[in-house]
């Protein structure tokens, strides 16, 4: 029996999430793993926007910032439980993406890149400057999610890093499942069609502004949820989360691993989250090596690490 790409991706992801902890030398690695998953969630959103629909955004950290600050400020300012604050952040990100996306998605290529970059910078500046609400550049404390206590009261006691590893892993799996469902659905085909040829997509009846806006809003919600999870597990957040460096890191992860493939992009998030940690033995040459690896992958594996590797394997097999 042949597995579909969807089942294979989900199976491999689930196996990696469950099996990797057996190789962890210390509990610290649960934190690293959770960070990989959180980045993976944000990057899966970019797969929908960039890999499926062919639109670029250099401002998605802005939505991560909105999600992060919603989970921080919801409990303190609105007396909401943290879990509802995450949903509020996602809804707010969706609304802002909808309002911002309508005018700027008419732009193409690098014009869109610059416009989204500007949006991200705007969000991080608001977070840094509205210190009365956000705590300013020094950041703000984040309440405990409460789910861990709930599990403990049900008899499942987990240490914080283990809980966040497992919880982020589950959210990542759900996010990947949704994105893979979309790929092979009418909406997903419309997005991929407009990526292939916008004029042809229009002539088969695709309402291009509508579906690109849908992709933008969905990817914003992914980034928002990732931002919320990051804030909740760190119990602290600063405006850096919305900074343009994080936006660019997310796009780099997606493109490095393969923006057209959910597994590829998550793999890219994993490599680029882990590589800096693995290269620390190179001390001052760490950044140099990281840059060199990225340049080489892009020259020799333009589709990204995973799709290029798969093509190579299938090519040999045939």
């Amino acid at each position: 029996m042949r597995l579909s790409t969807k089942s294979a991706t989900l199976l491999v992801l689930a196996l990696l999430i469950v099996a990797t902890p057996f190789f962890f030398p210390s509990a610290y690695y649960y934190r690293v793993g959770a960070l990989v998953f959180v980045n993976g969630i944000a990057v899966t959103g970019l797969v929908i926007l960039t890999g499926y629909a062919g639109q670029i955004s250099l401002g998605h950290a802005g939505f991560a910032g909105i999600g992060a600050y919603a989970s921080a400020l919801g409990p303190t300012h609105l007396s909401l439980p943290p879990s509802l604050s995450v949903l509020l952040g996602a809804a707010l990100s969706a609304l802002i993406a909808f309002l911002v996306g309508r005018p700027i998605l008419r732009l193409k290529g690098y014009y869109l890149a610059v416009a989204t970059l500007g949006f991200g910078i705007l969000v991080s500046m608001v977070l840094a400057n509205e210190s009365g609400i956000t705590g300013g550049p020094d950041g703000v404390q984040v309440a405990e999610l409460g789910l861990r206590d709930l599990l403990a009261s049900l008899g499942l006691k987990l240490k914080a890093p283990v809980f966040w590893y497992a919880f982020s892993g589950v959210v990542l799996l759900v996010g990947a499942w949704l994105a893979l469902n979309l790929y092979d659905s009418p909406t997903g085909r419309a997005l991929r069609a407009l990526h292939g040829s916008e004029v042809a997509a229009k002539t088969v009846g695709v309402d291009v502004p509508r579906v690109t806006l849908q992709a933008f809003v969905i990817s914003a919600v992914y980034a928002s949820v990732a931002g919320s999870l990051l804030a909740l597990q760190n119990r602290f957040v600063t405006p850096d989360i919305a900074g343009y460096m994080y936006s660019i890191e997310l796009v780099t992860m997606a493109v490095f691993g393969g923006a057209g493939s959910v597994f590829g992009a998550i793999f890219g998030a994993g490599i680029l989250t882990l590589l800096p940690q693995a290269l620390t033995f190179l001390a001052e040459y760490e950044q140099l090596m990281l840059g060199l690896i990225m340049v080489l992958v892009m020259i020799f594996m333009r589709e990204g690490l995973v799709p290029s590797a798969l093509r190579l394997i299938r090519g040999r097999g045939a």
């Binding site: 949704l178 469902n181 009418p186 909406t187 997509a201 695709v206 969905i218």
Partner: peptide, 17 residues
């Protein structure tokens, strides 16, 4: 994809399969 007008529907239904 050429059948888009006949197959299009809610994006939520599409994501939830």
């Amino acid at each position: 994809a050429g059948h888009h007008l006949h197959e299009r529907g809610s994006v939520f239904a599409d994501m939830l399969h």
